[in-house]
């Protein structure tokens, strides 16, 4: 699986998505959307508890970025993580069962929505403390450079997290040591109830690397092709040993911050407007039709397939038993 840095960069694809990939992107975005909608419903039924942060609206970001990396590259993010996990190829059943707190979940029910991991898929979580994943992602990149394994780490964080001090401590080290990390800022305009202009003296977050000599780019995060294009360029930059790079993904979350957010800080019209005009899934669907890549019949078939896949995940998540009492004491230390 591990290849030399040279092999990787020689093969690294750049440029636009191939037409045959686009339908796959559509399918993955739809899976995330339907999965999240069901998760929201299960929360309402009391089957999921605690915090549950839905990713609906932001699907193009993770799907496009995932297509820009290769097997063995790492991904790390915060608590709004279901989409990242599904993109990484983690099993929807295991993710949903973690949400319901069952033994079949990725963390045996002990982590919940915010804390899932997969060594196999190189997904490093799933972190609840705003900003804390940024130095950790930088450390994964450090291990890549140290071991010269040619891998790149995608480190995701939000517009709100962009104000945490440890983000800048990370930027400095990453640039100083030319670490292979791509910082993907998911600028969905709000941190909980705070619109970005109320919290940030520089709202163009891709410029936040300037004083560390880190290049940055603003990207339309609602368009999966644009994301992929920018992602490929950034990943190549990091893999070639040129150091970190920032991609500021302009995106939007449709739902409340978590399930208990009354969302009084923005109007319904604002949300509705973006849903109608910029929805990443509808947008791609129109393109696929216009370019004659897919037909209505194809979409119908996909809808059905995804519906069944999500239904299987829900069924598994309800049937998987609760963790046994002994699990309380396991995994505190490794023997």
């Amino acid at each position: 699986m591990a290849k030399s840095a040279k092999d990787e960069s020689a093969k690294a694809p750049t440029g636009k998505a191939a037409p045959e990939d686009l339908l796959g992107f559509y399918e993955r975005m739809l899976l995330i959307r339907r999965f999240e909608e069901r998760a929201g419903q299960l929360y309402g039924m009391g089957l999921i508890g605690g915090f549950c942060h839905l990713y609906i609206g932001q699907e193009a970001v993770v799907v496009g970025m995932q297509a820009a990396i290769e097997q063995g590259d790492q991904v790390i993010t915060a608590y709004r993580d279901h989409g990242h996990m599904l993109s990484c190829g983690m099993d929807p059943r295991g993710v949903m069962a973690e949400l319901t707190g069952r033994i079949g979940g990725y963390s045996k029910g002990k982590g919940g929505s915010m804390h899932m991991f997969s060594r196999e898929k190189d997904f490093f979580g799933g972190h609840g403390i705003v900003g804390a994943q940024v130095p950790i992602g930088t450390g994964l990149a450090f291990s890549n450079r140290y071991r010269e394994n040619g891998r790149v780490c995608l480190t995701y964080f939000g517009d709100g997290a962009a104000n945490q001090g440890q983000v800048y401590e990370s930027f400095n080290m990453a640039s100083l040591w030319k670490l292979p990390v791509v910082y993907v800022i998911e600028n969905n305009q709000y941190a909980m109830g705070t619109a970005i202009a109320r919290s940030s003296s520089e709202t163009h977050l891709h410029r936040r690397g300037v004083s560390f000599n880190i290049p940055g780019e603003e990207v339309d995060g609602m368009d999966v092709e644009t994301v992929l294009d920018a992602g490929r360029g950034a990943v190549a930059h990091a893999r070639e040993g040129k150091g970190p790079i920032i991609l500021e993904m302009m995106t939007y979350r449709y739902r409340g911050h978590s399930m208990s957010d009354p969302a009084k800080y923005r109007t319904r019209e604002e949300v509705q407007d973006i849903r109608e005009k910029r929805d990443p899934i509808d947008h791609l669907r129109e393109k696929l039709i216009a370019r004659k890549i897919a037909t209505e019949a194809d979409f119908k078939a996909l809808d059905k397939k995804i519906k069944e896949q999500v239904a299987r995940a829900v069924e598994f998540a309800q049937e998987s038993p609760e963790p046994p009492a002994e699990e309380l004491w396991r995994d505190v230390y490794r023997a």
Binding site: E98, G101, R102, S107, G112, A325
Partner: peptide, 16 residues
């Protein structure tokens, strides 16, 4: 509280 990090699962949280 039990000498473990807090688990998410409802049954384990109760035990913790």
């Amino acid at each position: 509280g039990k000498d473990v990090p807090m688990p998410y699962a409802a049954n384990l949280e109760k035990l913790a």
